[in-house]
């Protein structure tokens, strides 16, 4: 981690956050941090609470215990629509693009968080990273393939010029080649500082079941088991951790 963390406060900090779906506790006192410019991954099995954790950041469900800080500001009790204007953008589970609207309209909706006065990244910038979206810009988003929809969801999130990009299982349901493409893209976006007018020092918080690839591109990782953080370490350490290997990487110890 090094210099950056010791100098400044973390970009995102969860302190003992719990949340519930009705009476069911989905998250139990989770603490974690993401620093500016980092790629942090959260791995865990189906139902471990990964998506719930991302949605809890946006107050849906609302944290029942603990505190969520973004750039030092307490966002635990903010209404959902006030979160993304602060600089968080979510590529949610299942992509949740608007199928009845065109690709271009979907992208334009990503700009909402910036309001009328702030300029987002240019379409040209997005289209150089996602050339396929340019070809399809007048098409209904529902007609895109799974991989294209994933690209659209990422492009929509980038439109808000996020300081923290949150990705929920971007590899789910995609062909291996498409997965490689998306991971390469995430890495290149961070390495280039998500440039061209986008925020410098953008951080990525990547939630994945596909632990191997996620840990390879991540600076740090957390392992979520039954709503609690079981392990944490650098991507490299976790890749070589026997418990992680056994449970998530399918390798016999």
């Amino acid at each position: 981690m090094g210099e950056r963390t010791s100098l400044a406060q973390p970009l995102l900090a969860l302190q003992e956050v719990s949340s519930h779906y009705g009476p069911v506790r989905a998250l139990d006192r989770i603490s974690l941090t993401v620093n500016a410019g980092e790629i942090v991954t959260l791995i865990g099995a189906n139902g471990a609470g990964k998506s719930t954790l991302l949605m809890t950041l946006f107050g849906n469900p609302r944290a029942s215990h603990g505190q969520i800080l973004f750039a030092g500001q307490d966002i635990t009790h903010l209404p959902t629509h006030r979160i993304s204007p602060l600089g968080l953008a979510l590529v949610p589970e299942g992509r949740r693009i608007f199928p009845g609207m065109t690709v271009l309209e979907n992208i334009a909706l990503g700009h909402t968080a910036l309001g009328n006065h702030r300029q987002g990244p240019s379409l040209d910038f997005l289209y150089t990273h996602f050339p396929i979206l340019k070809e399809r810009q007048r098409q209904k988003a529902g007609t895109l393939s799974g991989g294209e929809q994933q690209m659209l969801a990422i492009a929509r999130a980038l439109m808000s010029q996020p300081r923290l990009l949150l990705l929920d299982e971007p590899s789910l349901g995609l062909a291996p080649m498409m997965i490689r493409k998306i991971f390469a893209l995430i890495r290149s976006l961070v390495q280039s500082g998500i440039q061209s007018g986008v925020q410098p020092e953008t951080a990525v918080f990547l939630v994945e079941q596909n632990a191997h690839q996620a840990l390879q591109i991540a600076d740090r990782g957390y392992v979520l088991v039954n709503g609690t953080i079981r392990l944490t370490g650098t991507g490299h350490d976790l890749l070589n951790n026997p418990e992680v290997k056994h449970a998530y990487l399918g390798t016999l110890v």
């Binding site: 849906n60 629509h81 006030r82 993304s84 949740r96 609207m101 909402t112 808000s160």
Partner: peptide, 11 residues
């Protein structure tokens, strides 16, 4: 089309 997603986007 998707009220939750709309609010996630800041609407």
């Amino acid at each position: 089309q998707d009220r939750i997603m709309a609010s996630l986007l800041g609407i």
